[in-house]
Amino acid sequence: MSIDTPTLASRFRMQWEEAQQAWVLLYPEGMVKLNASAAEILKRCDGTRDVPALVADLETAFDTTGLEPDVRAFLDMARQQQWITEA
């Protein structure tokens, strides 16, 4: 079952880390360093948009098309890791 309206799970905090020049996900005693595209997707997982809206938003922001398969694949992985949940 894939996710409808993703939101960051409450256990995780996302923030920009100057020293690492990267967005990171922080959680109890751990950290994941995010690459640029993962960060762009996760920033938009705030419970206000469903997947099609999220994709459209990214495509506008980066002036491109055809992102949906990659975004869905990433969201599946992120949900398995429990980074995101259904809003």
Partner: peptide, 8 residues
């Protein structure tokens, strides 16, 4: 300032 981010 150095970049520590997890604090126990």
């Amino acid at each position: 300032v150095l970049g520590s981010v997890q604090c126990g």
